[in-house]
């Protein structure tokens, strides 16, 4: 057996144990406990303020280590790039706002910096942690378990299973639309044909195009989401009726 499998959280069984491990590992993200504890230990070697500051990246590093084996390097790096983008945007715009409206944020510069630094590392850790969490529970097995429920929960189970399947379907619709969009507009956020427009005219055209694109996306995603619903509903109705017949014949 691959030794690394031991560290892959999504392979832990039963599922409730996996859930508890996730909560315990994620606890530092939502509490002060380990940060303060670590900073107390580190303060023996460093300045106490510096010790508190370096406790945040240490916690983030621990969370990354936890997520990495389960996600694999490529997916982990994908998630990290999104996390870095989100963390940087949040922190940079936050500090800009802080400087623009100092009368609203009556916070001293040092406290604000520490808060933003903590926020920065928090976003960097929360993002991969929450995605690993979601990725570690199989919707397929939940759906199968729900459809196997016995009366009187059977009908409710079928409704939950249908709801989950619709959620999954929306995921596939979005990826399909992205592929279509990429063929039509390879740069994704800029139209393919820009003509000979001058700068100002181009900006107007681009804003208009962007607005229409959002509308097109909304409608296309609704239509493609709704498209298989009648067939899906029909299947569940048949399943429900067959269940009822079986229950009746068992009685």
């Amino acid at each position: 057996m691959n030794r690394l499998n031991f560290f892959k959280i999504h392979l832990v069984k039963p599922f409730w144990l996996r859930f508890i491990i996730f909560i315990i590992v994620g606890l530092p993200l939502f509490s002060n406990f380990p940060a303060l504890f670590i900073s107390q230990i580190l303060s023996k070697f460093f300045n106490p303020e510096f010790a508190l500051i370096i406790s945040y990246p240490l916690i983030s590093f621990f969370i990354w280590l936890f997520c990495l084996p389960s996600l694999g390097l490529n997916k982990f790096l994908d998630y990290m790039s999104a996390a870095f983008l989100m963390a940087l945007t949040t922190v940079i715009t936050s500090s800009l706002l802080q400087n623009l409206f100092p009368f609203i944020f009556m916070e001293n510069a040092y406290a604000a910096s520490v808060r933003l630094l903590r926020l920065y590392f928090n976003v960097l850790a929360v993002f991969p942690w929450s995605l690993t969490f979601i990725n570690s529970f199989s919707p397929d097995s939940i759906i199968n378990a729900l459809t196997q429920l016995r009366t009187p929960f059977r009908e409710a189970g079928l409704h939950f299973a249908l709801a989950l399947r619709v959620f999954q379907h929306v995921g596939t619709v979005v990826s399909k639309l992205l592929l279509i969009w990429k063929e039509r507009y390879p740069s994704l956020l800029v139209m393919r044909h820009t003509g000979e427009n001058k700068k100002l005219k181009f900006i107007f055209a681009w804003v208009r195009w962007l607005a229409y694109s959002v509308i097109d996306w909304v409608y296309a995603s609704i239509i493609l989401t709704f498209e298989p619903i009648p067939a899906m509903v029909n299947e569940f109705e048949i399943l429900s009726e067959r269940n009822k017949k079986n229950d009746f014949s068992e009685k």
């Binding site: 979601i134 199989s138 919707p139 397929d140 999954q168 596939t172």
Partner: peptide, 8 residues
């Protein structure tokens, strides 16, 4: 790549 969510 492997996908686990929303569908494996």
């Amino acid at each position: 790549p492997e996908i686990r969510f929303p569908i494996y």
